[in-house]
Amino acid sequence: MAKERGDRDDTGMSSAENEKAQPIQGPVLFYNDTVIDHFTNPRNVGEMEPGEANGYALVGDPACGDQMKLWIRVDSGRITDIRFKSFGCPGAIATSSMATCMARGKTLEEAAELTDDDVVRALGGIPEDKKHCSLLGIMALQKAIDDYLLGRMCAEEGDDLS
């Protein structure tokens, strides 16, 4: 029986696939179509002004020189906007894009639970020697959330002092 494919969402996957991503079988040698789609049409590219974003991170992988900047806007504990810029290989760009798609709309608690494996699975796998690239998106996301939480804590302390 042919598998029914749901409507494709922003991640480029059907919603059914998105909910139940299967473990990847065997070694992945090349970039697949989903990775290439996120590479050629990366989602959520851009920068946010300090007034728009309330969380920011700059992360780099010194092993290969990849770099990512990430901005998030958090309203009532939920990521309502997210933007990124990346310097790196197709794997780094695609995982950055997918990580922003997955984080958008999530509560901070949900977003904090995302792992690089989740991103790789959502992309349908990336080549083994590119696995380290997938760390960038999640690392940036966690750091941006920390940055937001730290900013709020400082603001609260400021309130207490006044």
Binding site: Y31, F39, T40, C64, G65, G88, C89, A92, H132
Partner: peptide, 28 residues
């Protein structure tokens, strides 16, 4: 990034390489 340029070229049917083919896949 060189490999990102290569993939764009590859998608248009152009085959080039970063540094040397042997270094492809190595992060350095």
């Amino acid at each position: 990034d060189g490999e990102s340029v290569l993939l764009h070229l590859d998608l248009k049917g152009i085959c080039a390489s970063t540094g040397s083919a042997c270094a492809t896949g190595s992060p350095e």
